[in-house]
Structure formats: C-alpha cells, structure tokens
C-alpha cells in the first residue's frame, strides 16, 4: 500500500454526503418490513373481520323484518340501528366498535414493538452503525406507526363499506340532527370520520413508542402498551375520577360521531385532536430523550 493511502485516514467531508432524499429510503424500507410481516397482516385481517361480523349479525337479526334491538340508543355500538336502512352506517358502527379496543390494541402492538423489537432481535445495533441515526430512526418508526394507524382505520372503513354495500341498501344519509344529506356527502363524512379516528390513535402510538424505548423486549413493550390502554379505559369508567378523565387519551375518542351532526359540532372533536397532539409532543419528546441517550447493549 502506498504511503499516501496509509496517511489519509481522516474522513474527507466530500465523497459520502448525506442526501436528504436518500434518507427517505429508511422510511420506505420500514413500511416494507412492517406491512410484509405476518403479524401486521393478521392484525389487519382481524380488523377487517369486525365489520363483516357486525354486518352479518345485523343482517341475520333483521332478516325477519324486525328492527334491531327495538331501536334507540339501547344496545350495541353507535349507529347500529340505522344500518338496515343504509349500509353506509356500517362504516360508522364498525369504527365505533373497533376504536375502543381493536384499533388501539393493533397500534399498541406495532408501536410497542417498533424499537424494542429491533433491540431484542439485535438488529437495532446494526441499524445504528449503518448509521441510521437515532433521531432519524425514531422519526421513521413513529411515522410508520402513524401510517399503520391510518391504514388500519381505512381497512376497517373499507371493509365496512364493502359489506354494507353488499348486504344493505345505500342512499341518502340521515344525520344525528335529523337532517338528510346526499350519499356523496355521506361518503365524504365517512372518510373524514376515518381520518379523525386514525388521528385519535396518535396518542397511543406515541405512548407505545416511548414504552418501546424503555425495554429491550418487544413482547414486554407490546404488553405494557396494551395494558396501559386497558387501564386507561377502565379508569375512564370510574366516575370518582372524573377530574382527570379529560386527560385520558381515550376520553374524547367517540366524539367522531359529532361529524354526523348538521352542522358539525366541533367542540369535542377539537379537544380530542388537541389531546392527541399533546400526547404526541409529550411522549415523543420523552422517547427522543430516552432513546438519544440510551446505551445500546443488546
């Protein structure tokens, strides 16, 4: 080897630059491996099955011409009584049925596994020496989890829309306020509701990501996140704790129904989105602080 080569050990700043556009390669790769995993596909499969079950159950129960459960707000998730008149309502019913548990559980699994899963597989150290960069990796993981929130919600909505269209008539939509809107407008509201439901999961996603930076066990992180989710849901039912209820990430979840009012009642919807933003900021910063300084020994 020539002397010159030996001496030139300092890293030249020129030849290997970080290209902004290339840094998105990791996000694409992350999306790829998230949605190619059997676990992710199974979660999405379960979510797609919920509207099918609800739709078929409603169809069977009403096949003799009777109304469902005597109508009113009596039993089952919101909007369930309207499904027989309009299949579009299956979208709202399915989202109302999956939002309290199925959707956040799926998000908890993906978010909880995000960093901890890489850590327990040992792949985290190789990503970091690649070098992925800790902040970049965390952002990519969070962006992927949020993408999953959106995809999971859309899977529920689209499955519900398909089942609703197949089993029930479609047509004009009666809002909660009693006014009627066209089917096109109803479809638009359904999309808006799906987006709001997806956004409602931002808080759980941030919480799961933070938990994921605390441990080197993917299973532990998933279990902790889902456990927290259940705990919060239970605490939200205890009236003596009403003073702190507004700070629970799940407290305003079902406010998405307000999008079916005419005019739309924005108060709780905005509270919900604000709360999700707060959770994202709080637990996102906590995750960043924790992950940025963490010794990677796994």
């Amino acid at each position: 080897m020539s002397r010159a080569e030996v001496d030139d050990v300092r890293v030249a700043s020129g030849p290997r630059e970080v290209r902004r556009i290339w840094t998105f390669g990791l996000f694409r790769s992350e999306l790829g491996i998230t949605f190619r995993r059997w676990r992710t596909l199974a979660l999405l499969g379960v979510l797609a099955a919920v509207p099918i079950l609800v739709g078929v159950a409603v169809k069977i129960e009403t096949s003799d011409g009777s109304t469902l459960g005597g109508g009113g707000e009596g039993g089952g998730p919101a909007f369930i009584a309207q499904i027989t008149n309009n299949g579009l309502f299956l979208v709202f019913t399915a989202l109302a049925a999956t939002l309290p548990f199925f959707l956040p559980m799926a998000v908890g699994v993906v978010a909880g596994d995000s960093i901890a899963g890489e850590s327990s597989a040992g792949t985290l150290r190789y990503l970091l020496v690649a070098p992925a960069g800790r902040t970049r990796l965390l952002l990519v993981k969070y962006a992927t989890t949020m993408t999953f929130c959106l995809v999971a919600t859309l899977v529920v909505a689209l499955s519900a829309l398909t089942v609703g269209a197949l089993l029930f008539p479609l047509g004009e939509v009666t809002t909660i306020s009693g006014t009627r809107i066209g089917f096109g407008e109803g479809l638009l509201r359904a999309l808006l509701i799906a987006l709001v439901v997806a956004a409602s999961l931002i808080g759980v996603a941030a919480l799961g990501l933070f938990v994921s930076t605390l441990t080197s066990s993917g299973i532990a992180a998933m279990a902790t996140t889902v456990g927290l989710l259940i705990t919060i849901q239970i605490l939200d039912q205890i009236p003596q704790l009403h003073a702190i209820h507004p700070y629970f990430f799940s407290h305003y979840w079902l406010s998405f129904a307000d999008l079916m009012r005419e005019p739309v009642y924005w108060d709780e919807l905005l509270k919900n989105l604000g709360l999700q933003g707060l959770y994202a900021a709080l637990f996102g910063s906590a995750a960043w602080a924790r992950f940025g300084a963490k010794d990677i020994t796994a």
Binding site: S29, R36, Y126
Partner: peptide, 23 residues
C-alpha cells in the same frame, strides 16, 4: 443479527437503506 422473515438479500437492502449516504 438479521430479520428472520426477510431473505438474505432483503436483509442487506434493509441495512443499506438505513445508511443515508448510500445511493
């Protein structure tokens, strides 16, 4: 440390994507 559910080739593509200086 590898992603067991990916092929050997895809493992390499994954690690390469993590490097922001890799074309």
């Amino acid at each position: 440390a590898l992603y067991g559910f990916l092929s050997g080739r895809d493992n390499l593509l994954r690690y390469d994507a993590a490097d922001p200086t890799a074309d």
